[in-house]
Amino acid sequence: MSTQHLLSLLVENKPGILTRVAALFARRGYNIESLAVGTTEIEGVSRITVVVSLDGQPLEQVTKQLNKLINVLKIVELEEETSVARDHMLVKVRTDSSTRSQVLEAVTLFRARVIDVVSDAVVIEVTGNTAKCQAFLKVLEPFGIKELVQSGAIAVSRGSKSMSEKVIR
Rank of each mutant, 00 (worst) to 15 (best):
A26L: 09
K68I: 06
G16K: 03
L7K: 10
A26E: 09
V62P: 05
V51S: 03
T63C: 12
P15T: 06
E41Y: 04
N31M: 11
I17M: 11
S53Y: 07
G16F: 07
E41I: 00
V76L: 14
N31A: 13
A23I: 05
S34N: 08
V62S: 11
V76S: 13
Y30G: 13
E41A: 02
S8Y: 09
E79K: 12
L78N: 02
G16Y: 04
G29N: 04
D87T: 10
S53I: 03
S83K: 03
L18V: 15
N67W: 06
K14C: 07
L73P: 00
V62I: 14
P15G: 11
N71H: 15
L59E: 14
L54G: 04
Q61Y: 07
A36V: 09
N13K: 05
L6I: 13
N71W: 15
Q61E: 13
N13E: 10
N67S: 10
E12W: 08
N67T: 07
K74M: 10
V11L: 11
N13T: 01
A22V: 11
Q57K: 15
G44W: 08
K14N: 10
V84P: 00
E43P: 10
E43W: 05
F25G: 06
Y30E: 13
A23V: 07
R86A: 14
V51W: 00
Y30F: 15
T40Q: 07
L18T: 15
L10W: 04
Y30C: 12
K14R: 15
V84D: 02
D87P: 03
G44T: 03
V50A: 00
S83P: 02
T40L: 06
Q65A: 14
L78Q: 02
K14Y: 11
V11D: 02
G29Y: 01
I75P: 00
L69H: 04
A85V: 08
V37M: 02
E79F: 07
T40A: 05
I17L: 12
E80V: 11
K74N: 06
L7T: 07
I48M: 09
I70G: 02
I48V: 07
E43M: 08
E60T: 14
V21G: 05
V72E: 03
S46T: 00
N31P: 05
A22M: 06
V52M: 09
A23E: 14
V45I: 11
K64C: 06
L9N: 01
A85G: 05
F25K: 09
T19I: 12
V51M: 08
E43Y: 09
R27E: 05
L59I: 13
Q61L: 12
E77L: 07
P58C: 08
R20V: 08
E43L: 11
V11W: 04
V52Q: 07
L9T: 01
E41P: 12
L10K: 02
I42H: 13
F25R: 08
R47W: 02
S83M: 04
E33M: 09
Q57Y: 07
